[in-house]
Nucleic acid binder design. Structure first.
Lengths: 164, 164
DNA sequence: TGAATTCTGTAACGATCGATCGATATTCTA
DNA sequence: TAGAATATCGATCGATCGTTACAGAATTCA
């Protein structure tokens, strides 16, 4: 199987960089608050090229969300990998404070900002965001259960409530 | 000074009830996610009457936010009035869990939902929501300082970070 | 070089956005 | 009962929404 060489005119923009711009825009203004005109202007790509390269707005948002999970949201993964429960909580807290306080990006949560202001529950973007949050909750819950087994967490507390 | 009797045709809707409907709609879908057509349909009032009674969309949102602060968000005020720091934290936690878990309203936070997806920072709705959150933070911070004085809170913790 | 393929840019589509107009209907005051 | 005041209604405004059609530009393959 040979490496296929793409024919035709090459794209004039960097795909990853364009996705970064889109991610920050969605991050800052939410899904409905970000128009295709905004994206086109800030990404430096004409609408037609956006649709050709990423699909429609939903698809672009999904790609931006994926990039968010891969790059800037890794700080929580680091916290989850702490050996003891206490160090996990401290790390999660410190990382969150540092994360939200950083000036490199908007002071908000992508998963919340992106999910809000969709008209119906079946909206794909909302479902996508909900899935990401559930994934986060599951990871945190597993970490809590591990802590309970090690006797680091009181048994009479409801794990689900605490997770939330 | 006599009580002025309003002349002209009386309104056919209940103002408070209409505001409740608008509040829940903004609560559920956010500011930009709620259209005037949605509001008109759910409130049972034609757009012109909405503009005549409440002003433009921003004004209606401000009134809905005020109603939110007056009615359903009182649970936090109750927590702040707990005598000891420990009972305050527990009350705040329990009330929040119960509040978010209730099925009488959307499982989200009005101040966040409403503030998101505004295009610029000077957007009045965003400023309004930010003001409400700052007010909340100030109240919580004052409660924390009171707790510190009573020796219920470790002094080496940063109050602002904890508040957040 | 010619054909096939892919990207770019202009222009525009129908739908919906928030907002407003003028006409009519209903109530109060005088 | 005449007139002022307010509410409702149907229609519609210009702007913007997400999206697409189409022609030309740039590249690879034969």
């Amino acid at each position: 199987m040979k490496t296929p060489v793409k024919a035709g005119r090459p794209a004039e923009f960097d795909r990853d960089h364009a996705l970064d711009v889109a991610m920050h825009l969605f991050w800052e203004r939410g899904y409905e608050g970000t128009s295709m005109a905004d994206l086109s202007q800030r990404m430096g790509i004409h609408p037609s090229s956006i649709y050709a390269a990423f699909g429609d707005k939903q698809a672009l948002f999904a790609l931006a969300a994926k990039r968010y999970a891969d790059v800037p949201a890794q700080y929580m993964v680091n916290a989850l990998e702490q050996p003891s429960f206490r160090s996990f909580v401290l790390a999660a807290f410190d990382n969150t404070v540092e994360f939200l306080g950083s000036k490199a990006h908007p002071p908000s949560c992508f998963t919340l900002t992106g999910a809000i202001s969709c008209d119906i529950d079946t909206e794909p973007a909302k479902i996508l965001m909900r899935g990401m949050r559930l994934q986060n909750e599951a990871a945190i819950k597993a970490r809590l259960l591990r802590a309970r087994k090690a006797g680091e967490f009181p048994k009479n507390e409801n794990v689900d409530d605490f997770t939330r």
